[in-house]
Amino acid sequence: MLSIEKGYGRYGELTVLHDIHLSVSRGSIVSVVGTNGAGKSSLMKFLMGVEIETEGRIWLEGEEISRWPTHQRVAAGMVMVPEGRRLFPEMSVRENLEMGSYTPRARKRRKQGFDFVYSLLPKLKEREKQPAGSLSGGEQQMVALGRALIAQPQVLLLDEPFLGLAPIMVRQVTRFLQELREQGLTILMVEQNATFSLRCSDWGYVLVSGRIVSDGQGKDLLHSRDLRKVYLGV
């Protein structure tokens, strides 16, 4: 449903992504793993069309969106949860969720969206009126996820979803992602922690210095030699 063909990403003179080929099939969870500086966030920015100069082609559900501006991609259902959550700190939880339903398509299904998110994440309803900046890290992560879900995504992009989470939260998030997959959502995540992400992924890619060096079935990739080389330098 989502694929990249011959992708290149540049910041000015510096090329950070080289010859990226990637595809995500509908209803699956795919992870792109790599160490710090491998280009993971750049890959997400590449897909969303922000802050980076791009070359190559991106396909979403059969449509080529390579030259589409960001807001159009979001409106088409490509929703990203950025690294570090990036909530609107002075807005309430509810307002943050409302921003999630900004696109016309999401706005139309706002009520269902809210019902859905509140049913999945009931704590958010409790904290509805609180300014998002005053919540704990884990709660903020929930708001970020809720905000993305309310946008009626076709494919959900997650930038380092497991970053800085306590083990119990890791399990919760994993279960959450799997549940979303059950509901038919397609998920692509970039993550430094290969174990957490590949364990729940159907497919995985390994990113090193902006290049995809190997890929495979989630769990297989986790135990592969290539991965060990990347993370342990063995």
Partner: peptide, 11 residues
């Protein structure tokens, strides 16, 4: 402030 290089937010 170069947030919008590349695909400019819609022209």
């Amino acid at each position: 402030d170069q947030t919008f290089r590349g695909p400019d937010g819609g022209g």
